[in-house]
Write a protein that binds this DNA or RNA. Structure first.
Lengths: 151, 151
DNA sequence: ATGGCTGCAAACACTTTGCATCGGC
DNA sequence: GCCGATGCAAAGTGTTTGCAGCCAT
């Protein structure tokens, strides 16, 4: 599963004249397994495997992948970016209280909802903002955004 | 038109026990007229009217409005936030090259595309990423992201 | 008049960049 | 061996916060 995605991506890197390093392989593995992480979370996971890896390398790699359209960046309500391997159109359900993100595939084509006229659409993203089941009770009383328990 | 929106919002502020100051009125006017501006663009416009207004006030006001669910924040592909008065569900078409944002209303209900199960959806946002008509030619040759001409 | 709001500046968080070294090709 | 990629640290952005004075209520 993962190796299939990874090889697709490494092919794309090579094709763009980029090198496949141990660090890039590691980072690709991490973001393939865990969508929606932010840069420092990715870095934290990476240091478990390679304690020497620098945060700058994480950013440089993410930027490279974004330039090649291999990952998407979105903020999902937070101030900083969250990264995930680019796939097809998809849907994020984001809980306003605990920040959990549920991912889904659209049942139909989101583009059908829009008269895009002459705008050339490459990708559609649908975000549904609200409350996850677990937070629906509590959110009615205490209005305490984000961070359900320790990060 | 604008005064209608503004009074709706100032009522909401008062109701939340907040004060209506000249600065807040000014900022509300600006973001009502210009959706999708980022904080420093808002500040720049504000200083044309009130040169003393501080950037911190802009951020504090935007955060206040966001807490009261009166504005939405989204990044629209950039690293920092863009703000707009919260309205109904809507669609953003974002040009990867020049950054222009075209806004539209969905032709149907975006929620119908998703099996949200027990997730309580408050708002839906649909983003279509691609190229605007003007950039469709150029983008095929020179790949120079964002900033069509001076900001 | 009182407590929230503001401007200013310092602090903070996130991201990028310069440079010497390392390692994929 | 060459040139791109890395680690480190310093610099750059964007955003938040502490504090004294100001002004809506």
């Amino acid at each position: 599963m993962i190796s299939r995605t990874s090889s697709r991506i490494t092919d794309r890197l090579r094709e763009a004249g980029k090198r496949i390093t141990a660090e890039r392989r590691l980072l690709l593995d991490i973001i393939t397994r865990n969508p929606h992480l932010d840069a420092s979370a990715i870095h934290r996971l990476a240091t478990d495997v390679n304690p020497k890896i620098g945060l700058a390398t994480v950013y440089r790699t993410l930027n490279l992948l974004a330039e090649l359209d291999l990952v998407d960046v979105s903020t999902l309500g937070e101030a900083h970016g969250h990264y995930e391997i680019r796939g097809d159109d998809h849907v994020h359900m984001i809980c306003l209280r605990c920040g959990v993100i549920r991912e889904a595939s659209p049942l139909g084509d989101p583009r059908s909802l829009v008269d895009a006229e002459d705008f050339q659409v490459l990708q559609a993203r649908l975000e549904l903002i609200g409350y996850c089941p677990a937070c629906q009770q509590d959110s009615k009383s205490s209005r305490q955004p984000h961070q359900p328990e320790g990060k």
